[in-house]
Simulated assay, not measured.
Amino acid sequence: MDTEAVRSFVRAAELGQLQRAADELGVTQQAVSKRIAGLERELSVRLFTRTARGVELTLDGQAFLPHARNIVAGVDRAVTAIRPGSRALRVDVLGLRSAQAVILHDYWRSHPEIDLDVVTLRVNDPRAAVAAVQADDVDAMFRTITDPAALPRDVQMIRAFDSPLELLVGPGHPLASARTVTPAQLRRHRIWVPGIAPRSEWAEFYDQLTTYFDLRVDAAGPNFGNEVLLDILADSADVATLVGARDRYIWPTNYDVRRIPIVNPTLAYPISLILPRTNPHPGLRAIINHFGSLAPLPDTTWLPSWAATPHRRDGDITPHRH
């Protein structure tokens, strides 16, 4: 099996576009297309379907992806074994539009000499995500084990930063003209967050949020992606959702979707970084220090219960406090 074809498949699956995968791999889009076509012939299945926005995995492609990642990671580990120190710092940001991806990109723009590999492991169960760190598939990942006692001894978890939430609504929503909103104002409105994965850290976050503020968060229906969610919000007079203030969203001008800060208190999602306890990648220290330079949140900020639990053990890397 052509491992470069497998690598092209993985990057195309993670980025959703053949051209972006080609740009990252330093080859032409035609080369990526040929590699994937050859892989499909070898496997006798279709791995992608083409859409107006790029490519999407077929069911066979979804089944093959985690195994393909293992193949690529195994090849990278083999190369690293004979060329110590040659591998880029590999960080899982969960989503390329997430606050952590935005902040990491800002850091890289100021330090372009950093050899950085940004990936998005589509794993909801935090225990499965931690396994990727333990297996050296990634050097660090933005995930949280909400019960520190369940954290394996060979990894550490640090609080990276807290991401304030905003209300996202269309122009016809009753709160569309508000400059800020409070949690109390949200109680009578439907907040739609489709596809909350059971046992995920964000499922626990929304459980605590709704209980504490008596909010109505509707998780019904599958998550068809940000574009579909924005389509629905733009046309709806009663549906809203919550997004991180630093999350990157782009929508057509005619949608007139509004992002409204939540205050009194600010609602924030605590974002942690999981990395090996011993011999972490040397490039992580500077990135962790960068988190400490972020602007602090207001004193009146609500966080879930686990955010008050110390993550650090003696000998762990410690970020600057903020």
Rank of each mutant, 00 (worst) to 15 (best):
V91Q: 01
A132S: 15
S110W: 12
V123Q: 06
H311Y: 09
A308P: 02
L175S: 08
L15Q: 00
E204I: 12
P304Y: 02
E24I: 05
R35T: 07
E56K: 10
P270S: 10
R41I: 13
A220T: 14
R188N: 10
I82R: 12
I262P: 03
D314R: 08
I274V: 15
Y206G: 02
A13F: 00
G61M: 05
R321Q: 14
H281M: 09
H290S: 12
L175V: 06
A12R: 00
Y212E: 14
S98V: 11
Y212S: 13
R143A: 14
D76N: 14
A220S: 12
V10W: 01
I36H: 02
T3A: 11
H67F: 05
D256N: 15
P148A: 06
V32K: 01
L121E: 10
A131R: 15
E113M: 04
N223Y: 09
G16A: 08
A240R: 01
D136Y: 10
T241G: 13
H111M: 04
A286V: 08
A220F: 01
P319I: 03
D154N: 14
R246F: 12
N279K: 07
V155E: 01
P222S: 11
I145D: 04
Q17P: 09
S177I: 13
V91S: 09
P198H: 09
D238N: 12
V217D: 08
P265Y: 08
A135G: 12
D316S: 07
M141K: 08
L59Q: 14
R312F: 05
P270E: 04
V181L: 01
A234Q: 05
Y107N: 06
R20H: 11
D125V: 05
R50C: 02
R90A: 07
Q134L: 14
A13Y: 00
R7Y: 10
I287D: 00
E4N: 10
A81S: 15
P194A: 04
L167Y: 02
V138N: 05
M1V: 11
V239Q: 12
R216L: 07
R127W: 05
G221D: 10
L168Q: 07
R312D: 11
V102H: 09
R7W: 01
R277A: 12
A21M: 02
A73T: 04
H311D: 15
P296S: 04
R259G: 13
E113S: 15
V123C: 03
T80N: 08
L151E: 05
P152E: 01
P296T: 10
P84E: 14
D139H: 13
W302V: 13
R258V: 10
A237W: 09
V45L: 04
L25V: 08
M1T: 12
V10R: 00
T266P: 09
V243T: 11
L297W: 01
N289H: 03
L43K: 04
L121W: 05
W108E: 00
I82D: 05
R199Q: 04
V133T: 13
D235Y: 06
P198T: 13
R87N: 13
T301F: 10
P152C: 05
T211G: 12
Y269I: 06
A131I: 11
I36K: 06
V72F: 03
R188M: 12
W251M: 14
T80Y: 06
D136L: 15
Y255V: 09
E40K: 02
I158H: 03
E166W: 06
I288Y: 03
P126I: 14
H111E: 08
